[in-house]
Nucleic acid binder design. Structure first.
Lengths: 340, 340
DNA sequence: TCTGGCACTCGGCCCTTCCAAGTGCCAATT
DNA sequence: AATTGGCACTTGGAAGGGCCGAGTGCCAGA
């Protein structure tokens, strides 16, 4: 075994021990707990080298070493082996998610499941509108000058918006409008609908145009408004349990977890479902999250990910376990969405 | 001024000082900060009496006094004067809530506003279905054997559910069903709809009854399922800020704030909008909430409250300010709902 | 009924001491 | 060249001790 190999082994051992014990780990403890076959002094040399390269650090002189963000990064990228979920965990995922009755239920069950599996805070984005297609648009008159616009997507999501019309409308007009909108929107993705629906106004008589414009404008804003994308959160209590280590930093973290904008940035752009992504500590570049890592995965019924889900926890988290959990849940949810 | 009056003054002073400083308050500090016109020794006697009666307690011998739950209760019931909101606060409420576009937006803005005003955790219940009336029921065919049921209430709330039919249906059947359901449900409160809709099946031919039954069953379950009542939460970070005083108790508290069931019980039965209710510490009889107080108010467009909103914080909270804030926000939201 | 005085209690702060864990370096060994 | 044992050094944290101040309860006097 070459020297570099052993150094990596040492780093791995440090990460594992530190994650397990939450305490800086010294050379002696390392050789005791892992059978490395060399003496503490040798380990010390390796550790000094690792420290020079920036993978570990010591909180104070005469203390053990702690992994740096860079160290965790190396660990995640090259040193950790996939830790398969236990059978009970697999069963838990299935039984928990199979009971879901609709999309909202899937999301809320997923987020609680993730929080429970990882004992950290979980975040799940509702499947994004912008990648869905329109299944149906419904217009309902609530009052002579007030219409409810309901948008139904192929993912089973329903968005509604109330429109105040510039003038009273009658059922005939609303009915015609409903028919026309559905004729050109159903089955289309949102971008296409945007393109087609704008010309719709011209097909109506001048006296109705203002009304039609009001309705289509609302429909478009529903389609476009990505910031409407919702996010479910659970397990924030787990972060508190993770100890007083966060100390004062707990409050900004909790605040961050309440802000949709922050959460969406956290989950990042959902690309393809497969790879689980890990952002470690300072890689987040988000004020309250410098001491936290984020493990995310896209999910969705097809090749493209509709949305993301993930877990937020301290940098000193069990990466293999968390990655496995997030990956497994994302895969299973994707399968459920496909079946629907 | 009789003796009992002064004792109550002393209690009030203790509560106010303790809330302000977070530290046990002694006789000397009391006479210094409040011009009570008597000597510390006199105050000591009063304090001893108050302690005998269970209104205050001392953490240790030779420490100042701290109000008990019973003391807070007396303070809230008889000693605190209403503290009107400041002009900026009033403005904040208006500008913040007037921008709301729909019911969901009202709720999410309200909960954030409450959290910000009181610097505590806020909880707002979505207007309850069970007290609403039906404005419209829409059936949308998603597939030959799959129908989306959309229920629209007079509060602007929309509930949807997907039904898998026992057999394929055609547009004609669904259209007829839609018309009939609306004919008997629109304008009715939920209890009436329950009563009327069950007989509906019999009006259809035998071959369609299974289909009709499936749809009506789903509609009924949507009407009845109160546990579907959702709750919005914000400001949990404020609880962390409230200091390490919660210590280990923070985690169960955060968990409790994530559980719909607990939150709904916390908000309690919404009765009439007007009075703000306060539950103090052990009055909650909820595991994680023994050190917290809950200030709630019903709200809704009419005389009856549709739902509740409230604030959760440490027992050592600023009751007059919190009560004023919750009351003002509840009144303002009620006004908005009435206007809609 | 109130007040001033007085003895007493006790938690928190500060200081010191001590210890264990851990390091870095170096000379010796393989 | 790599590894090892030995050793001096650093340092945070725990343990102990003394001090101080805030606060109390009680009592005798106004």
């Amino acid at each position: 075994m070459s020297v570099d190999d052993r150094k990596l082994d040492v780093l791995r051992a440090i990460v594992e021990d530190y994650v397990a014990t939450q305490e800086p780990v010294g050379s002696k403890a390392l050789v005791d707990r892992h059978h490395l076959g060399v003496s503490p002094a040798t380990i010390r040399n390796d550790m000094a080298a690792l420290e020079d390269e920036g993978y570990i650090a010591q909180p104070h002189t005469s203390a053990g070493r702690v992994p740096t963000d860079k160290g965790y990064r190396l660990f995640v990228d090259r040193l950790s082996t996939v830790k398969p979920l236990s059978a009970p965990e697999r069963r838990a995922i299935q039984t928990f998610l199979d009971g879901a009755v609709d999309l909202d239920d899937v999301v809320s069950r997923t987020v609680r499941l993730l929080a429970q599996l990882t004992r950290q805070a979980a975040v799940v984005q509702y499947p994004s509108l912008s990648r869905s297609t329109v299944r149906h648009v419904e217009l309902v008159m609530l009052a002579p000058a007030r219409v409810l616009v309901v948008l139904i997507t192929d993912t089973g999501r329903v968005e509604q918006r109330v429109v105040d019309l510039p003038a009273d409308a009658d059922d005939a007009l609303v009915g015609e409008l409903r028919a026309r909108i559905n004729a050109l929107a159903v089955g289309q993705d949102f971008a296409s609908v945007e393109a087609r629906v704008t010309e719709l106004t011209e097909r109506f008589g001048p006296e109705d145009r203002a009304t039609v414009a009001a309705v289509t404008a609302t429909l478009l804003s529903t389609l476009i408004e990505r910031h409407e994308e919702r996010v479910a959160v659970a397990g924030t209590g787990n972060l508190a349990r993770y100890g007083q280590e966060f100390d004062h930093e707990l409050e900004p973290l909790l605040s961050a977890l309440e802000e949709q904008v922050v959460l969406l940035r956290l989950l990042g752009e959902a690309t393809s479902p497969s790879p689980v992504r890990v952002r470690i500590g300072s890689e987040n570049a988000q004020s309250g999250l410098l001491a936290t890592s984020v493990v995310t995965s896209g999910y969705g019924p097809g090749e493209l990910a509709l949305a993301s889900m993930g877990v937020v926890g301290p940098t000193r988290m069990d990466y293999p376990g968390t990655i496995a959990a997030v990956g497994a849940v994302a895969r299973y949810v994707s399968k459920i969405l496909k079946a629907h």
